[in-house]
Structure formats: C-alpha cells, structure tokens
Amino acid sequence: MNWQAISVIYKSEMLRTWNTLLQSIASPVISTCLYFVVFGSAIGSRIETVGAVNGEGGVSYGAFIVPGLMMLSLLTQSISNASFGIYFPKFTGTIYELLSAPISFFEVVLGYVGAAATKSFIIGVIILLTAGFFVDLKIAHPFWMMGFFILTCITFSLFGFIIGIWADSFEKLQLIPLLVITPLVFLGGSFYTIDMLPPLWQKISLFNPVLYLISGFRWSFFEVSDVGHELSLAIVILFLTLCMGIVWWMFKTGYKLRQ
C-alpha cells in the first residue's frame, strides 16, 4: 500500500474543504435552521405527534424530521463532495499525475472517498447539534444510529465518486443529484411517514431505496419506522456492495480514465 499517497490525497481534499469553510459548513447549518423554522415551527406546530400508539408516546414533528434532514444533507453532500473531488482533476487535466503515480485505483478511492465521507460526517454532526437547539433529541439505539450514519457517508461518497468519473461536463455532474437524489429523498419520507400517503403511493414508495435508509435511521432515534430496520441495513449494504462493484469494474477497465 502506498500510504503516503492516500494520506496526501486525503489531506489535500480536506484542505480544499477548509479553504471553502463557509460554503462547506455554513450552508448546511443555515438550510437546517430554515427547515426547522418552516417545517418544525410554522407547520409542525399544527401537526400532532407522529408514531403515537393509541395516543401514547410518539415524537413531536420537529424531532421527527431530524433524521430525514440529516439524510438529505448527508446524501447531497457526500455525492457533491466526492464527485467534485475526482471530477476537478479530470477537468483541469491534473489527473495525469494520479494516472502516472505508483498508486492503485483502490488507493485513489480510499483517499477521495475517505475525505468526502469524513466531510459529510462532520456536516452530519453539525446538523445534529444545530437540531439539538430546536428540539429535544433522544437517540434510542446509538450504535445503530452511528452505523447508519457512517455507512451512508461512505456509500454515497462512493456513489459520488462514480458520478465524478462518469461525468464529462459540469452539467452531468449536477444532473444525478438534482434529478434523482433530491426527489428520492423528499419522496422517501424525510418529512412524513408513508402511512400518511394514499395506499397506492405507499406501495410505490417501497421501491424508493432512500425510504429504507431514512426509515432505518429514524428508527435508531425514535423506534418509529416504515419498514424493519434490519431490512434497511440490508438495503444500505446492498447499495454499498453495488457501488464497490462498479468502482472495481471501473478500475479493471480504466473506464473514462485511461484511453
């Protein structure tokens, strides 16, 4: 293993974050605050608690949306960071250095995806802390919560990396996050449980992989979920495996990197 290389890639990617600190960290904090003001306070105050059984228990709407909000940021941030990180050298041409260095594709992935995942993780923690100012948060299953949290950062950073290699224009780079991820997250129960939907839409929602992610993550907080948390975990791991498979194939074939 070329640890030096992994370390310089990781550090330079983290440094890039540091140089754009305001954009990297302030923007998720601000948008989280906005969501809380709009959904948590303005609308949420008119919504009863969610997940109550016979009028007992349940969580306030403000708290209910926290896991979904975190997932929304984790997914978009992981994808945009990782895809930008590898797309930029392709765009400027500095990729020649990565291609001519004594490093394996696996090491390149470790450096770039590791940095993107770290950054998402930090943003997730910041959102969690920000949310703590607005609502009372309890985490019922901390280990499961951390598990979902970290797996999501890694999986979607890997997914972003794949997009970054695939994209050959800035438009394509933004296409998938905009056209695929954002709708899936919004329709995946970030702001509602699916039993609030008409039956047909409940069925359709079950085909949305992000639903499982949010459901499992929310369960780890409040034990309120749309689907079983084991199933959620299985779906995340399945998607992670799929991404690793694609990356491995890209490595084998030199897809879009080595002509």
Binding site: N2, Q4, A5, I9, A101, P102, I103
Partner: peptide, 14 residues
Amino acid sequence: QSTMAFSRGLFGKK
C-alpha cells in the same frame, strides 16, 4: 510548495 509536496507524497516518498 504544497503542490510539490503533494506530488512527492503521491509517489510514495516521505
């Protein structure tokens, strides 16, 4: 300076 240090690291040198 940092881009040169980056290159050195990329090639596995301390």
